[in-house]
Write a protein that binds this DNA or RNA. Structure first.
Lengths: 190, 190
DNA sequence: ACCTGAACACCGTTCAAGT
DNA sequence: ACCTGAACACCGTTCAAGT
């Protein structure tokens, strides 16, 4: 049979997969390092089933946060269209930060994915998204021409690490610092 | 007997401790996640001895990189004395980056230490060191008054993550971005 | 006092046997 | 096809027995 992009999965398999993702998202949000066996048990499946759907721990983590990451990537064009570049960058940072410390696993998963296969699909997409923002800013003269997408992404990655009670206000403030780091400086530079 | 700060350790114990540190530094530089048992074996001691000297893996990591961290902290006063604040910050960033990707374990160890006991001795010292730089810059009017030591430290932490062939030039460039993020902006701000 | 190394607990991953 | 769960390999940590 020819494999279509569609679900050629058996119904029970599909249900299991969905249930695993649901449970994993729940457990990982609270404990962060929930063991695989606990996820399988809570989902009511054997460990083998878990590994059939997600061949490795990192694969599961990435799948759990895939939606968030994709949303982040897809949001970029609209942001660029609706706002001046630096404002778009700031809004994107805040959206990223808004996932909050609870979902800090996203970036860990991404980092892991980036490290294992250096040409990770998502890594490339994230770089492209950031490049779109920066290029718009360079065209309008708001963003310094020497800022690269990779390094700004690295800076933006810090937002996930903000902890504590007022993480929301503090990460917003840090987003401002990052935006200013990419801003083209006036001629009166030191 | 009264415990002095001095070495009341038996000579063999002291030699073991030194040898463990030496071997650990070596192994961790290459593999990064070298197992405890391998370190003990390579050092020629039992696992119990390893744990007698360093009660946990994090403790060992921190001890291995203690020298680097202390050097980083102690370098601050001289930098402030010899350079204008923003230049001091830049030089400090570069010194930090100069440890290179090989020793990336430093920050991992620090992060782990910070997470386990939130009032980690070194975390506090690092914040104080960064505050000294920023305060000097705020006094001279070069640094924006709203920049906090914690957030700048978070940004600086990204420097460790720079990888690839030309990591040296790229981390130097990122240090420039971070310095600009803390710079007080002229009145002609958007 | 300090050292040794077998043993424990735990976790990611695999696989023979089931349906 | 897909599922189950016992089993394997590995790693951090402990502890009874040695010197």
């Amino acid at each position: 049979v020819i494999e279509l992009g569609r679900s050629t999965m058996r119904t029970d398999a599909e249900r299991n997969r969905a249930r695993i993702l649901e449970v994993a998202r729940e457990l990982l949000a609270t404990s962060g390092d929930a063991p695989m066996h606990a996820i399988a048990q809570q989902a009511g499946v054997g460990q083998g089933t878990l590994y059939r759907h997600f061949p490795t721990r990192d694969a599961l983590l990435l799948a759990v946060y895939r939606q968030d990451v994709e949303e982040l990537i897809e949001a970029v064009p609209a942001l660029i269209a609706a706002h001046p570049p630096l404002e778009a960058l700031r809004l994107w940072c805040e959206r990223l930060a808004s996932f909050g410390p609870v979902k800090r696993g996203v970036i860990d998963a991404l980092e892991a994915a980036t490290r294992t296969d250096l040409k990770s699909e998502y890594h490339h997409q994230l770089v492209s998204a950031m490049e779109a923002i920066l290029d718009a800013g360079k065209a309008s003269g708001d963003v310094r021409p020497d800022a690269t997408a990779e390094e700004v992404l690295l800076l933006v990655g810090c937002l996930w690490r903000v902890e504590g009670a007022d993480w929301e206000a503090r990460s917003r403030h840090m987003a401002g610092l990052i935006v200013d780091a990419t801003r083209k400086r006036s001629e009166t530079q030191a």
